[in-house]
């Protein structure tokens, strides 16, 4: 159930969830800057995506602080950030805004909230080791320019592809993508 603005209850739960999850990658002291946000608005004023979408990065940070989980996770705005880091660079409180956006997206992805279009990219990656396929036109251009028709990546070495597929089965990424497909 979506939490309507009228009956939402503030809590630190979402912030703690973001911290514990993000700390597997980023230093916890960096992530703790989330609590330092005073809603000055430097971020939202710098955001090139906010000029043309409904993304209001300041509100998103506030939503995470207040624990408005559904409001933060179940919105298209979460996926409108190009991760340009302008907000993070300019934040006078040094909040790791962009990194926090990525961690929140990780939570959303795990819960099957990613877009179908994103899953196409994830599936390409799982199947080939690349985000986009190699097409005939690409091969032709490569040969014309004196390059090998297939680059020496996982596209040329099936054992390399098998390696990353094994990693993705072990670390759970494979299941997240396949489960999300349903």
């Amino acid at each position: 159930m979506k939490d309507s603005k009228a009956n939402r209850v503030p809590s630190w739960n979402l912030a703690k969830e973001v911290m514990s999850r993000g700390a597997r990658i980023y230093p916890l002291e960096d992530l703790n800057t989330l609590y330092e946000c005073v809603q000055c608005g430097t971020c939202v004023g710098s955001c090139p995506s906010g000029r043309r979408t409904a993304l209001r990065i300041r509100s998103m940070i506030r939503g995470i602080q207040m624990g408005y989980r559904e409001e933060v996770l179940d919105t298209n705005d979460l996926w409108s950030c190009t991760t340009c880091y302008t907000c993070q660079e300019r934040c006078p409180r040094d909040v790791r805004v962009t990194e926090i956006v990525k961690i929140v997206r990780n939570i959303a992805f795990e819960e099957g909230r990613a877009k179908e279009r994103h899953l196409v990219v994830a599936n390409n990656f799982i199947k080939t080791g690349h985000t986009i396929p190699l097409n005939e036109e690409g091969k032709k251009t490569r040969v014309k320019l004196g390059l090998s028709p297939v680059p020496p990546t996982s596209l040329l070495f099936p054992e390399a592809l098998a390696e990353i597929q094994e990693i993705m089965r072990t670390d759970g990424f494979y299941n997240k993508v396949i489960r999300d497909k349903k």
Binding site: I103, N106, V121, F157, K176, V177
Partner: peptide, 25 residues
């Protein structure tokens, strides 16, 4: 040549899906 390399993986898209998988790849 880095034989058998893959996607980096893409920071904004695959990193947004699963940072731990992004780091190990």
């Amino acid at each position: 040549e880095m034989n058998g390399a893959t996607c980096c993986p893409a920071p904004g898209v695959l990193g947004s899906f699963d940072l731990e998988n992004w780091l190990v790849i």
